[in-house]
């Protein structure tokens, strides 16, 4: 058994421990013991190690997502405050995906769900299609293009 199967996890656990408990020699020793123990316990779960080929594109993805969340926050807040709710149509959209990597799909799911206005409902791994619920469904194709061009392309590039 290796002592440090996941060095990044161990390091970030130790950093979090020291940030929460204050920097002192005793906390450092205790934090190191706990971080190494948790790291080797995690190895029993055998999580897949993430492989970011083009990790330098990650900040771009984060910036795009933050801006999109901001814009859809405003849009959804307006829609909620509007008087007649019956004019707005919301519904399900099926999006065919190319992305197959589990980590990429997980990131995409988090992006889609934390953006107000779209919610991830289901993903079928055999047909690789995604069921999405859209709050303000005017044009189905617009939402399919948005998911595919804005997020999926970038994720494919990062993970490829």
């Amino acid at each position: 058994m290796k002592l440090l199967p996941y060095p990044l996890l161990t390091a970030s656990l130790l950093a979090m421990w020291l940030l929460l408990n204050g920097l002192s020699m005793g906390q450092f020793v205790l934090g190191t013991v706990i971080a190494i123990a948790v790291g080797s316990v995690t190895a029993a779960l055998q999580p897949a190690k993430p492989r970011f080929k083009r990790w330098y594109l990650l900040p771009k993805l984060v910036a795009i997502v933050l801006a999109d969340i901001w814009r859809s926050n405003i849009a959804v807040a307006r829609l909620i405050l509007r008087k007649d709710q019956s004019r707005r149509v919301s519904g399900f959209v099926v999006v065919p995906l190319e992305l197959r990597d589990p980590l990429g799909l997980a990131i995409l799911a988090c992006i889609v769900t934390s953006t107000p206005g779209t919610a991830w409902v289901e993903h079928d791994s055999t047909s690789n299609k995604l069921l999405l619920h859209v709050f303000d469904l005017v044009d189905e194709q617009h939402w399919i293009d948005l998911i595919k061009q804005r997020y999926e392309h970038l994720l494919l590039e990062i993970l490829a």
């Binding site: 926050n73 807040a77 709710q85 953006t115 107000p116 619920h133 709050f135």
Partner: peptide
Amino acid sequence: KTFYERVHAPTLGATW
């Protein structure tokens, strides 16, 4: 009105 619409609402508070 419906559950699937209401799921979108709490994300406002949880994001920005």
